[in-house]
Design a protein around this nucleic acid. Structure first.
Lengths: 176, 176
DNA sequence: GAACGCATGTAAATCGTTACATGATTCA
DNA sequence: TGAATCATGTAACGATTTACATGCGTTC
């Protein structure tokens, strides 16, 4: 069972959000706005675009505009919009939570129901994380004398708890 | 230029911290204490252990103890300790910062100079991140009317700023 | 019109995961 | 003794990165 792919969905998300885009445009947006969370090289992007055209997820935009250059512009197809919708609606799990920011990035409309759905699932997941991490800290460092001999471990565990707790608070503040 | 490897250093870190360990022991510690930050499959671990024995970074521990099972125990060698030391001392950059938690995990002693060194570099890096993210937010959403049409983007950018700011505060609290 | 830049494209090498395999130990 | 379990080991595939390649357009 191959690892689930990310790139095709980001491509769909960008095209759905921005309309017509070239590969170059996508690379540019990846770098400026998405590199904080995810990166991709152009040697992955271009073959993927071809594959997605074959799959009818996207199509080449016959722009009357700028065809001076060898730029290829793409637009999303109906099938692609459904694929994107299904991806956004997938349940959030420990395994795929690293993609949640990317999913949110693809949602332009503040009132989209899927947005609240994602935030709520994310909240539940990270609340569990906090519980788990706190239990782990209590187990390992409940006796504070254990901190001395494993200070680095203690540090990152403490930090993880703070980080997750902050995230939980933020998520709650964004949920209706 | 191949991507820098992580696994060998974690192996060295664990052996340096715990003394004698088998592959199974490492897998176990990966799962319980490190899975929050990093994962590895056993099919990666075992060949890597063999490679590191060949390189004299570690060696098989001739335990008189439990040799009933086919368990193979390892200990770190002097060369491995130097390799580990060099890794911990590498400058922290945007590229390798995702490994910082793993590095901290390998440092048992609260008073180790390398600990403060890492925390300070990490602080500088994330302070820069905050500056960059805030500038980006000002540029994109300084005009609040822009939020409506790109709400997801606004959300994750805002969250990133809070997350990084919290991290900066935490780092400062841990620095002498 | 020759050289360079740039969007796109291709190849090779590496990394990492899943699935499967081995051989020893335990236990019924 | 034979089945099951377990630590270790191997194979195959997909994903990702680096390096290199193509070919159009601009510019000097």
């Amino acid at each position: 069972m191959p690892r689930p792919r990310v790139l095709p969905y980001i491509i769909l998300g960008l095209l759905n959000k921005n309309g017509t885009m070239s590969g170059k445009d996508m690379i540019s947006e990846f770098k400026t706005d998405i590199s904080e969370f995810w990166t991709v090289s152009h040697s992955q992007l271009y073959p993927e675009l071809q594959r997605m055209v074959d799959e009818k997820q996207i199509k080449v935009a016959e722009d009357v505009e700028v065809k001076d250059r060898k730029v290829i512009n793409y637009v999303i197809e109906a099938k692609g919009q459904e694929t994107l919708k299904r991806w956004l609606a997938e349940p959030i799990t420990l395994k795929n939570d690293e993609l949640t920011s990317l999913k949110l990035y693809c949602i332009s409309d503040q009132r989209a129901p899927i947005l609240q759905q994602i935030l709520k699932q994310c909240l539940a997941l990270h609340q569990q994380k906090v519980v788990h991490l706190k239990a782990r800290k209590e187990l390992l460092f409940g006796d504070e004398s254990a901190i001395k001999g494993n200070y680095g471990h203690y540090l990152i565990l403490s930090r993880a708890i703070e980080r997750e707790s902050d995230y939980v608070n933020w998520l709650q503040s964004k949920i209706n």
